[in-house]
Amino acid sequence: MGLLTNRVKRSEIKPGDHIYTYRAVFAYSHHGIFVGGSKVVHFTRLETNTSSSSNNEADSLTEECLKYPDCGFRQPNSGVVLSCLDCFLKNGALYSFEYNVTPSLFLAKVRGGTCTTAASDPPETVIHRAMHLFQNGFGNYDVFQNNCEDFALYCKTGLLTVDRLGVGRSGQASSVIGAPLAALLSSPLKLLMPSPVGLATVTAGMYCVSRYATDIGVRSDVIKVAVEDLAVNLGWGNNEAENVSTNRQPGDLISLD
């Protein structure tokens, strides 16, 4: 992987890797966790009868996979899906999300949703989280606070945003929010800029700073939460969930067989 692209070959990815692909001519990216056996666990919107968007991931999962009978399986009322790699990519290119990058490299990657300064946990822990959430869900999908990238980032790091009213962990979402914010912050500086080039430079700099400030590797409003305790922390669970979380250990693995 280089500065300009995180594109990789299928032979290069390993179980526990955070992968993604672009949709709608690079308009946005869809993220998931590769768990081995040509399978990916990822988070989507719940399928609805009223949805008419051609970009809705849930719509594409209604198509039958002829290669893997279990492809597209999800628990009732859950947006966490187990798909084969082919159906996840939908003919798109394969990219690998980078972890533990330096601040300079993070800022050099102008597009959000490609890397983080946060460190990844071991692959077995990542797969355990992904399979646990596949069985138990990841709450309601929200494009800014709880999306597919948030899901993959949590599986890789175990970090959860404390302030649910702010932007989530997703670098892709923070980029969308950061761009207008940068333009707004730079507007008072127009009088100080002798040319459009100077204004563009200031705007770009503020955009990068605002994107970096929302990265989970440097934020102060994130905490490490065991996947067994996730439902309780986010208010999804009940007393039964609390009992399960006290009896399960964070290192316990769920079989992929």
Rank of each mutant, 00 (worst) to 15 (best):
G2Q: 12
L4N: 04
N6H: 07
V8A: 11
V8N: 02
R10A: 13
S11G: 14
I13R: 04
K14R: 13
G16M: 04
G16E: 03
A24W: 09
F26N: 12
F26K: 10
H31Y: 11
G32N: 09
G32F: 11
I33T: 09
V35F: 03
G37P: 01
S38E: 15
K39Q: 15
K39E: 14
V40M: 08
V41G: 03
H42E: 15
T44G: 02
T44K: 01
R45K: 13
E47I: 03
N49H: 10
N49Y: 03
T50R: 07
T50H: 12
S51V: 10
S52A: 06
S52I: 11
S53W: 04
S53I: 01
N55W: 05
D59T: 09
D59R: 14
S60N: 05
S60T: 08
T62W: 09
K67D: 14
Y68D: 15
C71M: 10
F73H: 11
F73G: 00
Q75V: 10
Q75I: 08
N77E: 15
G79H: 05
V81K: 01
D86R: 08
N91L: 08
G92H: 03
A93V: 00
A93R: 09
Y95E: 05
S96Q: 14
S96K: 15
N100R: 10
T102D: 12
T102S: 15
P103C: 02
P103Q: 07
S104H: 05
F106V: 00
A108Y: 07
A108H: 06
V110S: 00
R111H: 09
R111I: 11
G113T: 06
T114L: 06
T114C: 08
T116W: 03
T117F: 00
T117A: 06
D121R: 13
E124P: 00
V126F: 10
I127E: 07
I127S: 03
H128P: 00
R129W: 10
L133W: 02
L133K: 01
F134W: 15
G137N: 07
F138R: 01
F138P: 01
N140D: 12
V143R: 09
V143A: 13
V143S: 11
N146S: 12
N146G: 01
N147L: 05
C148V: 06
E149R: 02
L153Q: 13
K156L: 00
T157K: 02
V162A: 14
D163T: 07
L165D: 12
L165E: 11
V167S: 11
A173C: 03
A173M: 08
I177T: 07
I177C: 08
I177M: 13
A179N: 08
L189Q: 01
L189Y: 14
L189V: 00
L189T: 06
L191R: 11
L192K: 12
M193I: 06
M193P: 01
P196C: 02
V197A: 13
G198S: 08
L199G: 11
A200E: 14
T201A: 14
V202Y: 14
C208W: 02
V209Q: 08
S210T: 14
R211H: 09
Y212S: 05
A213G: 00
I216A: 01
V218I: 14
D221M: 07
V225M: 06
A231T: 02
A231M: 09
V232D: 11
L234G: 00
G235Y: 10
G235I: 12
W236I: 01
W236M: 10
W236N: 05
N239K: 04
E240N: 09
A241T: 13
N243K: 14
N243L: 13
V244E: 11
R248Q: 10
G251W: 15
D252I: 04
